[in-house]
């Protein structure tokens, strides 16, 4: 965790109301992993008190450039869009824990709903770099909001669903998942709460549907990893990147919690934002 001054290099509105900004921040670009985030300070002239958390969208250690992708939802994000190249803003990061990819996983299924693409985008880069096959399922309200394929690595298979059927599959992105669940070794998702909940239900019933016999002894099958540990998460089929209103983003204020199946609130900023889907108590109403 470092406090760094990041210089804006490029700012583009890639979709209506959605922006992609590149910052020069070498200290963040090296050593950050997919799923982690930065906590960015908006100008305090406007009475904006809290920082804003953004997932790393892409990270280039060679050039020291990181990008963030966000939608303008209020005064804070609106302020960011008015930054000019050369402006410097204050970033705290990298924060949170990353996606855990099992070294034996060959096929990764990424599921993103809307702006959730910002949470899993960097994982596609990492997976392609490591020689894994990646399918990205993307859901949006309509064709207007579909993430442009030109911004994705060529190696990624990109499947789109829209709620109104204006592009790709007509329906929710979760309806595409059963076609890939047998192929995938691991799945990673980021998006609206209902989408994640539906995916968690699918993931919980996956083994029963696929009928995979557990023959022999798998590596590490004997010992039980404590829930939430990197090992336990690596073994989980589905990992989700959660969202919650955030205060400090370092675990001090306990503002951004989600309820775990263990009955103790977990901090999205510290234990998360990535959780194994079975760690989250989806029905707790939190």
């Amino acid at each position: 965790m470092r406090l760094v001054a990041a210089e804006l290099v490029d700012s583009r509105e890639i979709l209506p109301g959605q922006w992609l900004q590149s910052f020069h921040a070498p200290a963040l670009a090296s050593g950050s992993r997919a799923g982690q985030f930065v906590h960015v300070r908006a100008g305090d002239w406007s009475g904006l008190i809290l920082r804003r958390p953004f997932s790393f969208n892409t990270v280039d250690a060679a050039t020291g450039i990181i990008t963030i992708h966000f939608r303008t939802v209020g005064r804070g994000t609106d302020w960011f869009t008015r930054l000019r190249a050369g402006d410097t803003i204050d970033m705290l990061g990298p924060l949170g824990r990353p996606f855990e990819v099992d070294s034996r996983s060959r096929h990764l299924l990424l599921v993103a709903g809307g702006l959730g693409i910002a949470g899993v985008r960097m994982l596609a880069d990492e997976a392609v770099r490591d020689g894994r096959q990646v399918v990205l399922l993307f859901g949006a309200a309509n064709a207007r909001d579909v993430y442009p394929s030109s911004l994705l690595p060529d190696e990624v298979e990109y499947v789109v669903a829209t709620d109104d059927g204006s592009l790709g599959h007509h329906g929710f992105v979760t309806e595409l998942v059963p076609a890939y669940e047998a192929w995938a070794d691991q799945a990673f998702a980021c998006g609206p709460g209902p989408m994640l909940r539906a995916l968690a239900t699918l993931a919980a019933g996956r083994r029963g549907r696929l009928g995979v016999a557990r023959l022999g002894r798998k590596r590490g099958a004997g010992k039980v990893d404590p829930p939430g540990s990197p090992h336990a998460r690596r073994k989980a089929f589905l990992q989700v990147s959660m969202e919650q209103n955030m205060g400090c983003a370092v675990g001090a204020c306990l503002g951004c919690v989600v309820m775990s199946t263990g009955g103790t609130p977990q901090r999205v900023c510290r234990e998360g934002p990535v959780f194994a889907s079975e760690e989250i108590a989806w029905e707790a109403g939190w």
């Binding site: 008190i49 809290l50 205060g247 306990l254 503002g255 989600v258 009955g263 109403g285």
Partner: peptide, 19 residues
């Protein structure tokens, strides 16, 4: 275990919390 989230939000010139 504290309160049900959301627990924090930004308000004009400040924040509101209910941890």
């Amino acid at each position: 275990i504290g309160n049900v989230p959301p627990r924090v939000t930004e308000t004009p010139g400040g924040m509101l919390n209910s941890i």
